[in-house]
Design a binder for these strands. Sequence first.
DNA 1: CCCTAAGCGGAAGGCTAGATTCCGGTTGTC
DNA 2: GACAACCGGAATCTAGCCTTCCGCTTAGGG
Lengths: 195, 195
Amino acid sequence: MRADARRNLDKIVTAAAAVVAERGIEAPMEVIARRAGVGVGTLYRRFPDRNALIAALGDHYVHSLADALRRSEENVPDAWTALREHLTWTVDPGRGALASAMAELPDEVFLDRPDFARARGHWLEMLDALVHRAQAEGAMRPDVTTEEVLALLNLFACHPADLPAAVAARPARFLRLILDGLQATAATEPPTAPA
Amino acid sequence: MRADARRNLDKIVTAAAAVVAERGIEAPMEVIARRAGVGVGTLYRRFPDRNALIAALGDHYVHSLADALRRSEENVPDAWTALREHLTWTVDPGRGALASAMAELPDEVFLDRPDFARARGHWLEMLDALVHRAQAEGAMRPDVTTEEVLALLNLFACHPADLPAAVAARPARFLRLILDGLQATAATEPPTAPA
DNA sequence: CCCTAAGCGGAAGGCTAGATTCCGGTTGTC
DNA sequence: GACAACCGGAATCTAGCCTTCCGCTTAGGG
């Protein structure tokens, strides 16, 4: 592969991640190309269709998800805090709707990409384990399932353009509000200080 | 207005409310017409453009919102419970994305419809008062603004199709999870019983 | 330095989905 | 019974994207 071609490939992936984070998984191919400073033709030469591009992105993203989760678990002793830290990472602007993109992924994307599916499954398992641990440690209300936590997370993840402006502006703040409600008791840690 | 015309008008408004609740404010006109058992032509004769239809719906909805809020305040002594009851009403399936529709409303819709704007403002004021009262009563964390409560509510209100399936299936459950986090202390009322 | 194949950009063509118009055929109402 | 008000929905028009294609450019081996 020629040097300039590789350069462009990188630019495309970077741009695609950004655009998908901002506009969701259905962002027009042309917007991505333009953002990468490249013609649509170049984009299509590299990725025969949208799914190929999304899969490339997803592969990337899912791995960093798993890494981030592992990192949180290592740095933070208690499960609840680790969970909160990880979810906050997830919601970071710039990562934006990527999590959503992963959630929305049509099945076709996974066909012929077992590695991707596996990596995603791995992350889900780790998350599930963390939730259970947090509950076992008594830091998290026990009547909430991992699936529900994910659903709550995905609330942030509908098409970015449709998010309430306030939430889009300060996702971490709102995530925090929501997570506070998942604690076993607010007494353990009183709500963030009164204004 | 001929009797059959009036009948159709009613059918259209009813159908539109249902469809908008399900598919959001941008639901195709034809879907609405079909649901009303009417041709598109009839729809357009009655409402020259989408905004006219939405405004009619909004007018309706905003008044029932205000009524519902007033009712909650009357039936329930403490502000926090009243607030929770009202928000739950809002999120009821069948009302679905109507609240969202109201949130997304482009400004044009309000032009030449000062009554509508006023009614909407009135509801917002009542809600704000209720929030302040709940906080004064010590039942709600004081660092949360009414605007934030609305944003949280609107999280349910992005295009219904984009909602995480789990949330769409049990909106009240998720609203409850979120609202629990807004309480002053979980100690006041422990989280819903362990599974 | 030159030649050639790899690369490139973006105009052109095609498609889908939905908005809107229009008019021949119906149906209340007086 | 006559006529104006109403209907339904086919036909038309748009807008927004996807995807292909091809003439021009450029990296990089010889």
